[in-house]
């Protein structure tokens, strides 16, 4: 009765977006044959200058992919436009061969940690349970089943002991792990993370990379905006160089070259980066 009533209410109240969001079956194994994320001719502009311009890139399945480029190169914009969070000027985005709106149940996003107000009145567990939103009905409240699933995700990032902490009391690294746990709760096949290693401590960096590598072992695809060129070789299999346009993309061993760094970062900045990398390599 209640179920039927809720369904009728959804139709009647024009809340079709909610119904649609939940009626989607989670993508089966067959859909994974399609490219997890294919972007073509994507341009985005804030005002007059393009933030990214005519980017074509395909992210191969089951890999750990870094997006690198200088500040203001449009790395975060690329993720947001792929997710349909910001409007695109032109171009196409396909997620597992479908439009992003039809694939949302299979994509998890980790925004930049600094993009939210951590003084928000919520505990760690509340934030992680947000990742279960798409599996919940309109009026349903988060219950013990959701709590258990969220706890399992917190366990994976080593934050189970902090479940009832107010989020404002966490360190930067702990906040980042909570964001990762929230994405894990979505149980997606494509993960898009914006600077997951920015400003975190060494222990957190290890914990996060262990989880991301684990996701790759499970055949999932993980895309990270990444800023630390020194760790690219250790952490990632694929790299995409972006500076408004796409400069290069492919396996790290083929594409992570002085030439591409030069093209992406330009002049002296690149020289410093390359020198640092040499020092790091020795």
């Amino acid at each position: 009765m209640i179920q039927a009533g809720v369904r009728a209410l959804r139709r009647g109240a024009g809340l079709l977006w909610l119904a649609r969001a939940r009626s989607q079956p989670s993508t089966g194994a067959g859909a994974l044959d399609a490219c997890p994320l294919a972007i073509s001719g994507l341009s985005v502009s804030y005002g007059e200058k393009p933030a990214i311009f005519s980017v074509d890139v395909e992210f191969p399945s089951g890999s750990l992919i870094a997006i690198v480029g200088p500040n203001g190169a449009g790395k975060s914009t690329l993720l947001k436009a792929a997710l349909g969070i910001i409007p695109k000027l032109s171009g196409r985005v396909e997620v597992f061969g479908k439009s992003i709106d039809d694939a949302r149940g299979n994509v998890a996003y980790v925004p930049q940690r600094a993009s939210v107000d951590w003084d928000f009145p919520a505990r760690v567990i509340d934030v992680v349970m947000m990742g279960l939103y798409r599996t919940m009905a309109l009026f349903a409240l988060f219950g013990s089943a959701e709590r258990q699933r969220a706890m399992a995700c917190l366990e994976r990032v080593g934050m189970a002991d902090f479940a009832d902490r107010q989020i404002g009391q966490l360190s930067g690294g702990q906040q980042q792990r909570v964001f990762l746990a929230r994405a894990l709760a979505q149980d997606a096949d494509l993960y898009l993370l914006d600077e997951p290693l920015a400003g975190v401590d060494a222990a957190t960096e290890r914990a996060i990379m262990d989880v991301l590598k684990g996701l790759r072992e499970e055949g999932r695809t993980v895309v990270c905006v990444h800023h630390d060129l020194a760790t690219v070789r250790d952490y990632f299999d694929q790299i995409v160089f972006v500076n408004v346009r796409k400069i290069a993309s492919g396996p790290v061993e083929d594409v992570f070259t002085d030439e591409n760094l030069q093209k992406t970062y330009g002049g002296r900045l690149a020289a410093t980066h390359i020198d640092k990398l040499r020092v790091a390599a020795e």
Partner: peptide
């Protein structure tokens, strides 16, 4: 109270809410 979850998520983290398909 009807849109409690949606209001909560989109107030805390609008970008994430949009990525979930919450308008």
């Amino acid at each position: 109270f009807t849109f409690w979850k949606e209001l909560k998520i989109s107030t805390f983290d609008e970008g994430y809410a949009l990525s979930l398909g919450i308008p």
